[in-house]
């Protein structure tokens, strides 16, 4: 029995050896083809739930059902945590406590991040997007809740009072605590908080290596393309609820804002998108769909453009590379900007 190292070196390969190397190298892809033929095939796995009061779902494309299910359970766990921060239904949520007390010590990183992006987009839209319009909302809701309400909307006097409480610059997020500069100020993170949750889950999923994902947690964002190799097709609902309009989307988010989304009165003139300057519902366009990389941005920019109007849209979009807006004018014509 010999102990001599008999391994040949690659340089000294015999003809036979070289053939073997080639054959083995070719065998591997064949093995993979075989494995793909007999192994599990990827398919969609869906999670359904409610997030911040909106019907939500998560759709993953993966071949391992176990892995997909575990992943969705982990995401559900994370969604639950974020809900405990942003929910307007839970009296102990951070947002409710912030609005009630006007300040919040030891706010979570998530709440601070959302307020920071809100502030940033507020700046970028010249104040057209403002997260502190909640007092206006209250005035409208109260006005139209009473019988025989003036269809024109609340009185200028009531609005002035509420408007004095609006101002995104007056949210102080320095340090660990969040503070409103004036008593009675309130933030509504409706939309942007959903956008944040959507982004957060999408990012986590991307890090887990999922390539074809639809995240609809109040806002819609997709990862990659449809597994068929085309972009995802997202239907945009119109005033009547039909979804004939489609946007192609890959690796991005889309948010649709129209004055008809939530209306206070039958005429639909008074709705939830307020112009912080006038205190009235904005009437610039029918609706706007913003496509952006992140759901947080898409939502807030959309509100900003809706309030600011078509003329200022390109200036706003220019500050967010890779963002475009599809505006439906009041006369029904459509224009894409950006």
């Amino acid at each position: 029995m010999t102990l001599v190292d008999a391994r040949p070196t690659p340089l000294g390969l015999s003809r036979r050896q070289a053939l073997k190397v080639v054959a083995a190298t070719a065998a591997l892809p064949l093995g993979v083809l075989g494995l793909r033929a007999i192994g599990p095939t990827p398919q969609f796995h869906t999670w359904n739930g409610e997030v911040l009061g909106a019907v939500s779902s998560l759709t993953l494309w993966h071949s391992n059902a176990n892995f997909a299910r575990t992943t969705m359970q982990r995401m559900a766990s994370e969604i639950g945590r974020l809900e405990r921060i942003f929910s307007l239904y839970r009296p102990d949520s951070e947002l409710r406590r912030l609005n009630a007390d006007g300040m919040l010590e030891g706010a979570s990183r998530d709440l601070r991040l959302v307020l920071t992006s809100a502030r940033f987009i507020g700046l970028a839209t010249g104040g057209a997007f403002d997260p502190t319009v909640q007092p206006l909302w209250d005035v409208y809701a109260r006005h139209f809740a009473s019988p025989g309400a003036d269809p024109a909307g609340p009185s200028g006097f009531a609005l002035d009072a509420a408007r004095s409480l609006v101002g995104y610059r007056d949210i102080d997020t320095d340090g660990g605590a969040i503070r409103f500069a004036r008593q009675g100020m309130q933030a509504t993170l409706n939309g942007i908080a959903q956008g944040y949750i959507t982004d957060r889950i999408a990012d986590l999923l991307r890090n887990e290596g999922f390539q074809h994902v639809v995240v609809e947690l109040g806002e819609a964002r997709v990862l990659g393309d449809h597994p068929e190799g085309r972009p995802w097709r997202v239907g945009l609902r119109d005033r009547a609820g039909a979804t004939d309009r489609m946007v192609d989307l890959s690796n991005g988010a889309v948010a649709l804002h129209g004055g008809y989304g939530t209306v206070f009165d039958e005429s639909g003139r008074n709705h939830h998108i307020f112009d912080p300057v006038t205190g009235r519902s904005a009437q610039t366009m029918l609706d706007v769909a913003v496509v952006s990389g992140r759901a947080t941005d898409a939502d807030a920019i959309g509100v900003g453009i809706y309030v600011a109007g078509e003329e200022r849209a390109s200036a706003i979009l220019a500050q967010f590379p890779g963002t475009r807006a599809i505006i439906t004018r009041r006369d029904g014509t459509t224009v894409t900007i950006g």
């Binding site: 575990t70 359970q73 982990r74 559900a76 766990s77 994370e78 945590r81 990183r109 998530d110």
Partner: peptide, 13 residues
């Protein structure tokens, strides 16, 4: 640093 709670990790038995 993430603020993610423990349930996120525990969900992968």
């Amino acid at each position: 640093f993430d603020g993610v709670d423990i349930g996120f990790y525990l969900a992968e038995p």
